[in-house]
């Protein structure tokens, strides 16, 4: 991690609950590229993705009082807001995607081709580790993460029983944790 942290997560949360704009600026600087990456993987359209990113951060700002650190990490909460807005965009704007799997696979495979990929998080280093992940493990994470699919949709897409989505996801994430260590 190369980014110099100005605030601990607790401090940041406390300041944001008090509607501190400089803390929000810090939040944007540290998380916008990550959230934008997720949105872009889902939409594959920069203009649309920037609109969703803007909408997401405004929602994060306006609804920050709803964030409860007991229920999970700040990033997870922000990611869920962002992902839900992106899914809304896909569904409400008549946004068509022929093959979500195809796109998400491409997205993962084409990571190194993105000229404007953020480097501030040692993304390259992380990506090297990710190459150690098996393809089917990446796929199930990507389907949920970048495809916005539900458990049932993942089950249908991968043609696996609904009950095994949980265990496969768990296995993939355990593997992810291993390669990131």
């Amino acid at each position: 991690m190369q980014d110099v942290k100005k605030y601990s997560e607790d401090e940041l949360v406390h300041l944001l609950k008090n509607r501190d704009q400089s803390a929000f600026s810090y939040l944007y600087d540290n998380y916008s590229s990550v959230l934008y990456g997720v949105i872009y993987k889902m939409l594959e359209n920069h203009e649309l993705s920037e609109d969703v990113l803007q909408e997401a951060f405004i929602k994060i700002w306006n609804n920050f009082s709803n964030y409860d650190s007991d229920k999970g990490r700040l990033f997870t909460w922000m990611l869920n807001i962002t992902r839900n807005l992106t899914i809304d965009t896909i569904r409400s704007k008549g946004y068509k995607k022929q093959s979500k799997i195809q796109n998400s696979e491409n997205a993962v495979n084409n990571i190194s081709d993105k000229a404007n990929t953020a480097e501030s998080f040692d993304a390259l280093g992380i990506r090297k580790h990710l190459t150690l992940l098996k393809n089917d493990q990446k796929q199930i994470i990507d389907l949920a993460y970048f495809g916005g699919l539900t458990q049932e949709e993942i089950s249908k897409t991968l043609d696996i029983p609904l009950g095994t989505v949980k265990t496969k996801m768990r296995t993939a994430i355990i593997e992810l944790r291993k390669v990131l260590k």
């Binding site: 916008s32 590229s33 990550v34 990456g37 404007n116 953020a118 990710l130 992810l176």
Partner: peptide, 11 residues
Amino acid sequence: LESYAKAHAIV
């Protein structure tokens, strides 16, 4: 998962 997302970050 946060790290995974960071690997896909785009400015």
